[in-house]
Design a protein around this nucleic acid. Structure first.
Length: 453
RNA sequence: GGCCCCGUCGUCUAGCCUGGUUAGGACACAAGCUUUUCAAGCUUGGUACAGGGGUUCAAAUCCCCUCGGGGCUGCCA
């Protein structure tokens, strides 16, 4: 059987890290085995599904470079298929119309809980009703409430998982012939699309036995299952809209796609090296080696990884990803060594614009405004004198001045602040080389003015 | 409450299957070197097998219990 996997997000929210990671693992598995990876939008819930979420998910996945094979499938475009199988199931008596009201269902559930039983609906008039008879109602799969059978399935990551069939109740399939519900639509889709491996989040483990019963009712073979551990929020709870899902949109502002891919790949998996490209991961990837326990999303390592990738960028790429088109080539090595998150580029604004700062920042330790102004005058003269020379003689002269003024801090600190306006920045001599002699002198003069006015 | 899944440094993890390691790595952290600030780099350091019982000459590793965390419990996905 050919390898065919799918990612099936519901467009009820923007793409977040959990969905992206599940997509990555599916992609990796398909690539490793030369199989196909399909993207299917599960939009049967018209109330909660929105086109802009769908677009967000699709564009986010494309940005990450997680490309899918073939067209994008949408469940709302496959209604005829669901209807066909629903009718078949109904005709065979394996499915039936259930006319219990929501209130009745709720009461049943409460009573079961009070009796410390598993809450589920066991319909007491299976097969007795037809659509004409009542208003509303939903279609359910008939499950034996007294069954002593166990449903056992093999999870590639977790091994065998068992469930008591009788605890499942009559599984809801569809609100009506044209409105399928999740478990049913998934099974029909995975079956007709010939999915070989269902690789999804751990939160779907409890749906699996229900889906297995549907497969059996349909009389079709099961795919293989693999349930990935969840990515956890810092408080170890499931990442969701509630605890401010970590959205790819937000992450895009600070991280490179390579970084995110590499990072997500190591959440729940261990590769031979820390820094891995998509292709390198695909080569090593083995579903059996995916971990069982959830992984907390922690941005320390993410930042570090991003720094590794940023350093490999060409000057043109750095300008592109930071959005600073005016960043000079000469500044790139200086910036790249200090940049972890893309949006932090603003800390280096002095490379493309004159800095703004408080005069007091120019004064080093015990020095005074007056002495600092004097030092800067001397620095300006030295800079002017070395107008067309290389860096080393300039540095040497500055060092000599330092000796006279009682330490390098007295010279380099105000010089650096004059050029950068920051308390932390690269070496002033290097900055002056980037911005040029003229600009360097102009900034020194501005600094002197600030000190003397 | 019921069912299911999981449990190695702060975090991501190697090791577990096929018992014998000074329990390894990365990030983060601390200290030192360097030093005009920051970053980078180099050196060094601390921190973990959830707990308790077994089995065994020997247990992170095998078995049981407890505890802890998580997921599901919809006419959502």
């Amino acid at each position: 059987m050919p390898i065919r996997v799918r990612m099936a997000p519901s467009p009820t929210g923007n793409l977040h890290i959990g969905t992206a990671r599940t997509t990555l693992f599916n992609w990796l598995f398909a690539r490793k085995h030369g199989g196909e990876f399909i993207l299917r939008i599960e939009d049967t819930d018209v109330e909660r599904s929105h086109k802009h979420y769908e677009e967000n998910i699709i564009s986010g996945l494309a940005w990450l470079g997680l490309h899918w094979d073939g067209p994008i499938y949408r469940q709302t475009e496959r209604l005829a298929t669901y209807r066909e199988h629903l009718e078949k199931l109904l005709a065979s008596g394996k499915a039936f119309w259930c006319f219990h009201t929501k209130e009745e269902l709720e009461q049943e559930g409460q009573e079961q809980q009070a009796r410390k039983e598993a809450p589920r609906h066991i319909c007491n008039h299976k097969g007795q009703g037809t659509r004409e008879r009542g208003q509303g109602g939903i279609i359910r799969l008939a499950v034996d409430g007294n069954s002593t059978r166990k449903i056992i399935f093999h999870d590639i990551i977790r091994g065998d998982i068992e469930w008591q069939e009788r605890l499942l109740g009559d599984i809801s399939l569809a609100k009506d012939l044209d409105t399928p519900l999740y478990n049913f639509a998934v099974v029909i889709d995975d079956m007709t699309m010939q999915i070989s491996h269902v690789i999804r989040g751990e939160d779907h483990i409890s749906n699996t036995p229900k889906q297995i019963l549907i497969y059996k009712a349909l009389g079709v073979p099961l795919p293989q299952f693999a349930h990935l551990p969840l990515i956890l929020a810092p408080d170890k709870s499931k990442i969701s809209k509630r605890n401010a899902a970590i959205s790819i949109d937000d992450l895009r502002k600070d991280y490179l796609p390579e970084t995110l891919l590499n990072f997500m790949g190591t959440l729940g998996y261990s590769y031979s090296q820390e820094v891995m490209s998509l292709e390198e991961m695909a080569k090593e990837f083995e579903l059996e080696k995916v971990h069982k326990s959830g992984a907390v999303f922690n941005s320390d390592k993410l930042n570090w990884l991003n720094a590794q990738y940023i350093r490999r960028l060409s000057p043109a790429q750095v300008r592109e990803v930071t959005g600073v088109a005016t960043l000079p080539d000469a500044a790139i090595p200086l910036v790249v060594q200090r940049l972890e998150r893309l949006s932090d580029i603003q800390q280096f604004n002095f490379f493309w614009e004159r800095p703004d700062y408080e005069p007091g920042l120019l004064v080093w330790k015990e020095a005074s405004k007056e002495s600092t102004a004097g030092t800067l005058e001397a620095v300006r003269e030295i800079v002017q004198r070395h107008a067309s020379q290389s860096l080393e003689p300039l540095r040497k002269s500055l060092d000599e001045l330092s000796e006279q003024s009682g330490g390098r801090g007295n010279v380099y600190w105000p010089f650096r602040v004059a050029l950068s306006g920051k308390q932390a920045s690269p070496d002033p001599v290097e900055i002056s080389e980037v911005i040029g002699m003229e600009e360097t002198i102009a900034r020194i003069e501005i600094a002197i003015q600030k000190l003397t006015s």
